[in-house]
């Protein structure tokens, strides 16, 4: 990559890049295929969290017992990606580096404050999720760097979570979507709420104002509705053929209510069991 710079592209699962190549919309001179590179395909539990190699296939993550147990929101989000045949090839790192704002994985990474292990010329550096996604289809990876692994924190067994999205058809890219994670303390008050939205901005975005409004509060319909209403001043989504800006804004708020409600409910259920 250092030699070829912008003439080269990294090929991971190819489920986003190869369509562009087939349409001749991008014409790199060199393709560097990571599929033959060893050491990038693994899921390991460590004290820092789940370390997932960038070339781990999405279907592998989705089916991983350890992911389902320790970070179930990740498995849940992946089920929303395309179709199984796509997830068999599509990699977790490929989706994150592609940084499509309508994709689920960047939002999960943001919501959970995942860490990105970036490999460069003999060096490795760690980038946190909110510094990784820069703009539309743009990350802070430098041209001579690749993503090595992603560290997702382990969720508390009592955590509630939900992924809600509107897509025009089953399996489509979301028009708008939300990843929500919450926990409740001994008194049933909200702790550590995390809300990230996708499809409503040039990158996935964290809804910190919504989170702030919920911390330490007793969950309830009104609280959730009022918190989600804060999105109105926060978002200025793009409009395109799939949905207008106004629609996305409205859908984001509705989905946030639904996701938080579901997450809180799940929290109650998991605390009881």
């Amino acid at each position: 990559m250092r030699r070829h710079g912008l003439d080269a592209k990294i090929l991971a699962g190819g489920q986003s890049l190869v369509p562009l190549l087939n349409l001749r919309l991008t014409k790199p001179k060199i393709l560097v295929d990571l599929n033959g590179v060893s050491g990038l395909d693994h899921i390991r539990e460590t004290s820092a969290g789940l370390r997932i190699g960038a070339m781990t296939r999405q279907s592998g993550v989705e089916r991983s017992a350890i992911v389902r147990e320790k970070c179930p929101v990740l498995a849940e989000a992946i089920r929303h990606i395309g179709h199984l045949a796509i997830r068999h090839r599509g990699t977790i790192g490929g989706s994150l580096v592609h940084a499509d704002p309508a994709a689920e994985l960047p939002a999960v990474a943001l919501a959970l404050d995942a860490k990105f292990e970036v490999l460069g010329d003999g060096m490795a550096r760690a980038v946190c999720a909110d510094e990784f996604f820069i703009d539309y289809l743009t990350t802070s990876l430098r041209p001579d760097e690749i993503l090595g692994e992603i560290i997702f924190p382990v969720l508390q067994p009592s955590s509630g979570y939900a992924v809600e999205e509107v897509a025009r058809r089953h399996g489509d890219f979301a028009v708008a979507g939300v990843v929500a994670v919450v926990d409740l303390d001994g008194e049933g008050k909200i702790i550590g709420p995390r809300v990230a939205l996708f499809g409503v901005a040039p990158t996935a975005v964290r809804a910190r104002a919504v989170e702030q409004a919920m911390i330490g509060q007793q969950p309830g319909n009104e609280l959730i509705r009022d918190a989600a209403a804060l999105l109105r001043d926060m978002l200025d989504p793009p409009g395109d053929i799939r949905a207008s800006s106004a629609y996305r804004k409205r859908a984001a708020a509705v989905l946030t209510v639904r996701a938080l409600t579901k997450a809180v409910q799940l929290c109650h259920t998991r605390r009881l069991s």
């Binding site: 058809r169 489509d172 890219f173 053929i241």
Partner: peptide, 28 residues
């Protein structure tokens, strides 16, 4: 419900692939 061939004001087709031209699937 799904399919639309929309053009912009320059006469460019906005839904010229199966990504944006939405054929109904088995769930639809």
């Amino acid at each position: 419900l799904y399919e639309e061939l929309a053009y912009d004001e320059n006469g460019q087709l906005l839904s010229g692939s199966f990504v944006n031209y939405l054929l109904p699937g088995s769930m639809e």
